[in-house]
Amino acid sequence: MSYPNTDEIFQLISKLVSIPSPSGNTNDVITFVESYLKELKVETKRNRKGGLIAMIGGQDDTKHRMLTAHVDTLGAIVKEIKPSGRLKLDLIGGFKYNSIEGEYCEIETASGKKYTGTILMHQTSVHVYKDAGKAERNQDNMEVRLDEVVKNAEDVRALGIEVGDFVSFDPRVEITPSGFIKSRHLDDKASVAILLELIKQIKTEKIELPYTTHFLISNNEEIGYGGNSNITPETVEYLAVDMGAIGDGQSTDEYTVSICVKDASGPYHYGLRKRLVQLAVENQIDYKLDIYPFYGSDASAAIRSGHDIVHGLVGPGIDSSHAFERTHKSSINHTAKLLYHYVQSEMIE
């Protein structure tokens, strides 16, 4: 028995996180995934929201499965061009300003021009501002310093930069000799890479799935509604593949697959959760059950939108979620193994 290749997944993660894709501006990364699947001769289509749906036929076409992971990421948008020539930001997604202080970023104009900059406190210089360390990290105090000769708002607008332009963060991706990958946006591009490698294995090894299976690469998860549509009436089981949250009181770690019991939306389907645990035990897959208290997924979005489905959530454990994220090869490996067995398993009764 072979499993999805973890080294190839790591290389794919590196490529994905290097493509800017804050929620609302995801066409480039969707095009990358679309091209990847086209080479595998996998049938795909885009929905009107810009997400991508792949489909692989199964032995039973009367009952379907859907697996989803999202390529949209945290980011920002230009809220204001200050008289100083610096940019005020409005955040995209649920994170805090302190997590992007000092980060390199890229501003993309409506015409497609791209400029670089750095996200800083207005009161950064300790030689000038007595409260440099104590001032609150918030929208009023943080700004983008452009890497262009700009002395006022008119200079900035002359570059083509305007309110509404998207701002993406430098991922700073790195694979370490000890088996870690650290980068921004492992949420959820690590899971996207796992699904793409799984699809590749299904196609290249001609694995016959028991049920017609859809793979949704969603592009609005970080703002709450990436996976709430395009679910076929035949879909019975809907599994979101997204990061497991690590912190005090959590059982999730960077070395196992996390199976979510409950998040802010409520409990996930008990029967599907038990089936996932059963598959892990039967196939020597290391797993942890966990609750994510401040979390929602594409599966919970699908439930909220009224779909009559069985929903679940699994994923690799990601440290420092929505900041400088990291996970280990073993967590990617166990997640990939669980999904490999899941798509070939019988549905719950």
Rank of each mutant, 00 (worst) to 15 (best):
E208V: 15
P210E: 04
I202D: 07
L195F: 01
T204D: 13
Y225R: 03
F215T: 04
I223G: 10
S229V: 05
N228I: 00
K189I: 07
L196N: 02
G226W: 11
E205T: 09
S191L: 00
Y211V: 07
L195C: 03
A190V: 09
I199M: 04
E221D: 03
N219T: 15
L198R: 01
Q201W: 01
T213G: 07
K206I: 08
L198I: 09
L196P: 04
I202T: 02
E222D: 13
L195M: 11
K206H: 13
I207S: 06
K200F: 05
E208L: 13
S229M: 12
V192Q: 05
I223F: 05
I202S: 04
K189D: 11
E222T: 10
L216R: 04
K189Q: 12
N220F: 14
N230S: 14
G227V: 00
F215M: 08
Y211L: 04
I199L: 11
L195Y: 06
I199K: 09
E222R: 11
S218Q: 06
L198Q: 00
A190D: 01
I217W: 07
Q201V: 10
I217R: 01
N228Q: 11
V192A: 06
S191M: 06
N220L: 15
V192E: 03
H214M: 11
Y211T: 02
I207V: 14
N230C: 13
T212A: 11
V192P: 09
K200V: 02
S218Y: 10
N219V: 15
E197R: 13
Q201L: 12
A190Q: 03
N230M: 12
I217Y: 13
S218R: 08
N230K: 04
N219K: 07
S218K: 02
I223K: 08
E221T: 06
S218D: 11
L195V: 00
V192H: 02
E222I: 08
G224I: 08
V192M: 11
E197F: 09
N228S: 08
E197D: 14
Y211M: 06
G226D: 07
H214F: 15
S229K: 13
K203I: 15
G227N: 07
L216D: 09
N228W: 14
E208R: 12
E221K: 04
F215N: 10
I207P: 04
S218I: 09
L196D: 01
L209E: 09
I223R: 00
K200M: 03
S229A: 13
L195S: 02
A190C: 14
T213D: 03
I199H: 07
I202M: 05
S229I: 05
E221F: 11
N230I: 00
L195R: 02
K189F: 11
S218V: 03
E205H: 13
N220S: 14
S218C: 06
Y211I: 01
E222N: 07
S218T: 09
Y225F: 15
I207G: 08
N219G: 08
E197S: 14
L196M: 15
L198C: 08
F215L: 08
S191V: 02
K200A: 03
S218G: 08
E197N: 10
N230F: 13
V192F: 11
K189P: 05
Q201K: 15
D188K: 06
L195I: 06
H214N: 12
E222C: 00
A193W: 12
K206N: 14
Y211Q: 06
N220E: 14
Y225S: 12
K203M: 15
H214K: 14
K206E: 15
F215E: 12
